[in-house]
Design a protein around this nucleic acid. Sequence first.
DNA 1: ATGGCCTCAGATTGAGGA
Length: 258
Amino acid sequence: MRIATWNVNSLSVRLPQVLDWLKANPVDVLGLQELKLTDDKFPYDAFEAEGYHAVTYGQKTYNGVALITRKPADDVVRNIPSHEDVQARVIAGTVETHTGPLRVINCYFVNGQEPGSEKFTYKMKWLGALENWVRGEMQKHPRLIVMGDFNVAPEDRDSFDPVGLKDTIHHTVEERTYFQNMIGLGLTDAYRMFEQPEKSYSWWDYRMLGFQKNRGLRIDHILVSDALKGSVSACTIDRAPRKNKQPSDHAPVIVTLD
DNA sequence: ATGGCCTCAGATTGAGGA
């Protein structure tokens, strides 16, 4: 089975591209981020027509997440329990698979704007709350995936300019420490389980011909629990949709579980 | 040159993204 994550940067604008991508890549689970629309505007019918269920947690203008699944998702949770938040950033659900239930936590992590800013403080608090919650979820759901737009480039090799961008947003020690703390809970970055091309990124700035020059960051991740690790047979970034007209600035990341 | 581009709300600009 295949599970994917994609920050679509407005589902209203990107819906045709998402549907086209699903036709070409009929994954079992697709986590979407940055819907930028409320649930009453979510195009449930369009996904149903492609054979998918959708559970959503939308918001006007900003943020918003969804899980698009072949089989209905159960035990759906929206945002981090016990963490008060007006921003819709998390949707989790459990789907049945031929090897047992699979818990998927799909997240749009806080951007943080700039170290030292209020938004950065909010990012750190949010990351701490997520870590605490995921620690408990791992106990309840051994077969767990945490995925989404992490807004963190975990290592220097995940950035097109680790020297010039040192200590800037996505690159700070604080953010990278939180990423490693998540790994320390017993999760593995599926992409780094395999040999990958040099300069592999999942996001490219719209400006400055970022994609054409491959000036990007790898900030979209799929983390798998130890119980799943043995069945992971591939993890790739699909750069193709970034070449579309009116693309999202993010590319989908896909993991294959046997 | 500290901005370049894209989206949204709602206005002819500003916020936010990363």
